[in-house]
Design a protein around this nucleic acid. Sequence first.
DNA 1: TATGAATGAGTGTTCATTCAT
DNA 2: AATGAATGAACACTCATTCAT
Lengths: 196, 196, 196, 196
Amino acid sequence: MTTTQPTRRDGEATRQRLLRAALELYTTVGFRATTTPAIAARAGVAEGTIYRHFSGKEHLLNEVYRGAQHWGTAVVQETGGEAGVPGRLLQIARRLIETAARDAAQTRMLLRRRDEQHLDERSREAEREFRNALQGVVAAGRSGGVVRQGPAELWTDVWLALVAFIAERVGAREWPPEAPPVSMALDAAWDAIAAR
Amino acid sequence: MTTTQPTRRDGEATRQRLLRAALELYTTVGFRATTTPAIAARAGVAEGTIYRHFSGKEHLLNEVYRGAQHWGTAVVQETGGEAGVPGRLLQIARRLIETAARDAAQTRMLLRRRDEQHLDERSREAEREFRNALQGVVAAGRSGGVVRQGPAELWTDVWLALVAFIAERVGAREWPPEAPPVSMALDAAWDAIAAR
Amino acid sequence: MTTTQPTRRDGEATRQRLLRAALELYTTVGFRATTTPAIAARAGVAEGTIYRHFSGKEHLLNEVYRGAQHWGTAVVQETGGEAGVPGRLLQIARRLIETAARDAAQTRMLLRRRDEQHLDERSREAEREFRNALQGVVAAGRSGGVVRQGPAELWTDVWLALVAFIAERVGAREWPPEAPPVSMALDAAWDAIAAR
Amino acid sequence: MTTTQPTRRDGEATRQRLLRAALELYTTVGFRATTTPAIAARAGVAEGTIYRHFSGKEHLLNEVYRGAQHWGTAVVQETGGEAGVPGRLLQIARRLIETAARDAAQTRMLLRRRDEQHLDERSREAEREFRNALQGVVAAGRSGGVVRQGPAELWTDVWLALVAFIAERVGAREWPPEAPPVSMALDAAWDAIAAR
DNA sequence: TATGAATGAGTGTTCATTCAT
DNA sequence: AATGAATGAACACTCATTCAT
């Protein structure tokens, strides 16, 4: 038996539970409707405990948001290898969609476009990193002539809008992650930005 | 006598001002953050006056939402004529985008996908009407072989996701309605659903 | 029967009750310990009602404070006539002490030196007006040679410190307003600042 | 062996730091506004540590208060010698004012008249001791005919009210301890209670 | 029809105190 | 003796809704 650290009352677990509770609430009802009583109840702690780990509701939102953006950035960075740009985008989309099937909240948090007024500078920076990582892939496609002419930023956003749409459906359990509409919509996403 | 009833202190104007104020607030800050004090202040009436015209905040939201959906349905129905399906979709998109340039709120309200928990059955019905009207166009394209194989519903949603993306940019004044990115993205929207 | 105004629900009465409740609490337990539930309970209204009349606890404090300072200024201005400076100061002190006997809160609020961090600029200005009015009397005494040499401001503060001490005792019902200690202490207050 | 006990991890230092931190906070922001997080932070210990040394916030306040009163009593007792009553009072006042210049908190705590609701019986007793010690000096003056007729208690309070006023100014660094207003006000304090 | 004072449930946050370590 | 995570009651304040005018 490898005991898990001499335990020291472990406030880290509480922190994680709070982050998870907030993530789930934010992505289902939005920031305003996510109340501190609800977060605490879902995390199974007292309301005051939130403030031992975060300076406030907004701080908690930002931590959660940042986590999702970092994860998204990692997803982009981990793909690649021998695949060409279309294949790499497909890998990324598949990873996001698979995750959405298991954990709708995380993907939703990554792709959502809401409550931006409550995000701080570091969060926006994390978002930019994710976008830039993805845009790097698209720009490579543009250079290679497989992506349409025009700003890579535009095609990144177009492609992402469609992937977000698919992930939302999968996250909502309307589509299984391997169902035909997913593949069809992924084809459409590529065709939207592919050079003709 | 065709005059609008003379004696009635014409609360209709008040009603319209409330609808407009609510529309603008909903589309910028969301349902929860749209408070009755804010609606009343923006409409220039007392808070209690809201309840002369609507049974509550939720009722007001639904009226506003329904108005936008009906307008969207009308936009779809008014297009057509001799144009083929691609041309007709383009007409529709252009109408929505032009409106977004002049009045971001209306288009945003039509295309937004949020706060659905607060919508009543009639509102959902109005939304379905709009979707169906548009889907009729797309389905015609499918029958005509110009739209991809697969469910018309799917291609309607895909196309709409991209038009919503464009309208949002235009409504936020990031793109003028006639700027190149608009046309490019509209092309992409069509290519996403066009038969190859 | 002279009816008191067509009544129009009269929110002014509520405002006055809130001011009075706050005055009494502030002068007995201090600003921090004066809670909004306590103010509302003492005024016989709901807690939310406070915010219909004042922007917050701090605003309410300032209104109350200003009221006391204005009253103090009026007391100084209403005295005078044929009496010399010593007589005039005595008149002022007597008015303050009589009021303290009937209404300890008002005099306490006028003379208290606490919670200054919560006072706004207008309140400080009102305080300065009171001090200046009183200082005018003391300065006249200095010019007339009946008050000690040295800054009139200093002798104003010294005199006021002792009057505050007396008013506090009277307000606390430890001394009746006409009891010997009051007169003796008033003599002492004058002797403290009188030219020898 | 005169060494301070060697093994004990000397929590006495912690206790002193807590007393000092509390003293400084109480005298600047008051009892209610002095929070346990603030006390702990200023003392450089964890919040829970407070409860190793004191049963609660109120206990801590009382210890601090008692310390100040005992110090005040000692100041009174250490003066005297060949000086007459006026000289002795002046010595006392000077000691208090000098201390205020170096350590505003201690003198403020001795002379403050606030938060009495939180003081326990022993604290009130300590306060009475200080007052009595001082009153002994004043009573001696009365017997000797140099202090006014009337209760010694009254003249003690009058004199102390003015010394508190001076000490406050000095503690607030508005007056240097040797500046002319200090001497003038000290003269006034004596004249207030001196037999004519 | 319109008002706006009043309400009370609910919000985010603070803090004195406890307790396992 | 010391820590600091956890608690829950209390706080200042907001807001959707009601109702007398």
